[in-house]
Design a protein around this nucleic acid. Structure first.
Length: 222
DNA sequence: TTCCCGTGGC
DNA sequence: GCCACAGGAA
């Protein structure tokens, strides 16, 4: 596997942060005043669901369930029916229910390490990374289909089918977000992936990264 | 690998 | 109408 030079990573970080400053999206759960509870449960809501869909729904959800304590007193069925408008509601409902029950046992406190978090039911690799990034303030990649697509188009494709187990993507995404402002880098990549570097009809013409992007440069030669 | 699922962009 | 979407478990 060919090693990606640091200079290419640095340039990617510089350009995408600059783009993010002017074009980034604003969501409530990105606000510094959002509670740890909000930062974690929103990741469940967001699974396989467009961020804009959750943006329209988030306030309603918080009114009903503003805290782990409140959520842990709700029944699984109630949570599921509240989640109906966003899709995948049976699954997300039971996930949140199980997480809330677990958090009730822990008196609402998260464990200190990433390994412990990953043992909590319904918290997989992605949420463990989000936990490191948002709660522990450590660099960690929000490696989803969005980020995978952006990184693969720019730096080159992965080997494995499954994003989550691909060692190349795991290392690359970690290297890219390992920066003074890891949260901004993560959000910048997700936003670019949703707004410009879309799966279908990517708008390469307005993309700030096209100059050094493998996908763009391969396509204009044809 | 497959399933979960309603919504919104096209 | 079709397809894609801040994943995780079985």
């Amino acid at each position: 596997m060919k090693e990606i030079p640091d200079t290419k990573i640095f340039k990617f970080q510089r350009v995408i942060l600059n783009w993010y400053k002017e074009n980034g999206r604003h969501f409530k759960w990105r606000n510094p005043s959002a509670s740890n509870y909000q930062k974690i449960i929103v990741e469940v809501l967001l699974q396989r669901t467009k961020a804009e869909t959750i943006a329209n729904f988030f306030s309603d959800f918080l009114k009903l369930y503003p805290s782990w304590k409140k959520l842990s007193t709700a029944s699984e069925k109630d949570i599921q029916s509240v989640l109906r408008p966003i899709g995948l509601y049976n699954q997300k409902g039971s996930r949140l229910y199980k997480m809330a029950q677990e958090m009730r046992c822990k008196n609402g406190r998260f464990p200190k390490s990433r390994e412990e978090v990953e043992k909590i039911p319904m918290m997989g690799q992605y949420i463990a990374n989000a936990y490191e990034l948002f709660i522990l303030n450590k660099p960690a990649p929000l490696l989803d289909v969005n980020m995978a697509r952006v990184l693969e188009r720019y730096f080159g494709p992965r080997k494995l089918v499954d994003i989550r187990y691909d060692p190349y993507l795991k290392k690359l995404s970690m290297d890219v977000v390992n920066h003074k402002f890891p949260k901004k880098i993560n959000w910048a990549i997700l936003d670019l992936g949703a707004m410009v570097c879309k799966k279908k009809n990517p708008n390469c013409q307005i993309c700030p990264l096209k100059e050094n992007c493998l996908y763009f440069n391969d396509n204009i030669l044809e």
